[in-house]
Design a protein around this nucleic acid. Sequence first.
RNA 1: GUGGGUGUAGCUCAGCUGGUCAGAGUGCCGGGUUGUGGCCCCGGAGGUCGAGGGUUCGAACCCCUUCACUCACCCCA
Length: 425
Amino acid sequence: MPMDKITAVKGIKDILPSETPGWQKVETTARAIFERFGFHEIRVPIMEKTALFQRSIGEATDIVEKEMYTFRDRDEELLTLRPEATACVIRAYVEHNLASAEPVTKLFTIGPMFRRERPQKGRYRQFHQIDVEVFGDDTPASDAEVIFMLMHFLDVAGVENLSLEINSLGCKDCRPGFSRAVVAYLGQFQDGLCPDCQRRLTTNPLRVFDCKVEACGRIISDAPRILDHLCPECLDHFDRVKGFLDDLNLEYAVNSNMVRGLDYYTKTAFEVKSGKLGAQNSLAGGGRYDGLVALLGGPDVAGVGFGIGMERLLTCLPDTEENVGKTDIFVAALGTRALKFAFKLTGLLRRSGFTAATDYSGKSLKSQMKRADKMQSAFTLIIGDSEMDSGRAVLRNMKTKNQQDLLLESLPEALINILKSEVIL
RNA sequence: GUGGGUGUAGCUCAGCUGGUCAGAGUGCCGGGUUGUGGCCCCGGAGGUCGAGGGUUCGAACCCCUUCACUCACCCCA
């Protein structure tokens, strides 16, 4: 009787061989483009002390309240699987004093994040992000540069039909005032709000802005707007960011209802959406977080960054036929002596840099030819015990069907020469 | 955490109002060529119809329970 299958954890998926080429391609272009903008890769652990996220993301956020994978280590210390990367990167940045090495530090990291939410399209409990952070630059130009890099990357990666939305969330000076104004306004219409929003009124009033309930939407449309409450500095910053985006000919929409979920964002916030994604239509989001580094015990330097959801990005890519790794040559062996010969020859060809395959199962030639065909082999070398005796093997060009005899004694050299000239074409 | 949808062969799915309903396509293996692939033809392996219980002479189909997956809400990448 079969044992029960042990399955993967809910919301956590395997990335199968048929999918890895897409992932690798995205990662490779990210690395190439980010380096071009002066960013360097940092790799940080996926586990951190729980306090790091409590302090950075905010105690009252959903992530910290109910979505983190937190457990007690054997020595009683509370650890958490990272729900996002920014806090981790800042921790490393502070811990290793990266600030003192250069005035502006540009970093990126790629890897898995963990959030215990109910899975749905574009949302998983383990998901992967490409995460970018700039420390030590508080200028509007750096906001715009980061946004430009994001859009350029998505473009090169091949994502189509994107929309960029930006907003300003104000700073510690102007946001509290705005927040009070919103609460006061919404208080008047409390009974008209959906139950969720009534709850948000006390927990996180700004979140009412991106409620999708129609009734709430009408109320919100006349609510105070953050952009009217910005302090002179924030307003100026926002205007200049927009100016730089215009200079780069980037299209964007100002969405004054956009609120970011994490507590630490200040000033510029942005989001990239795609219609291909279903309900979870945001494939990248980010913003400025001046003050966060200091909050985590580092120097008081500014920060901007963004995260890209890899799974979401990949579903936005047009379907490309995965070209499975092609095989340069398949060695079809028949008979014991030939098999031994094929084993050595295949090893030698691989050592010379070719993709060589063979089959040790002793199947019929027909069946081996089928395998060679499946592998899209450019050539097949046929060698049986009769060839071993005659001292010649048969090389078949799978596309042209041309066959030629090759002397066994000079076989490796002859094959390498043929493969070198043919395979490159 | 809350709601809807779906669970039949490795994969994609048919299966009418309970009565040859255990199927198709594809993939896999083999044969048609004693040692030559793709196309075509033929054959084969593979499923306790998600699991458990109930109704019935009889259940893939009806009822209950449960699990899984999925979409949506919440929230976010």
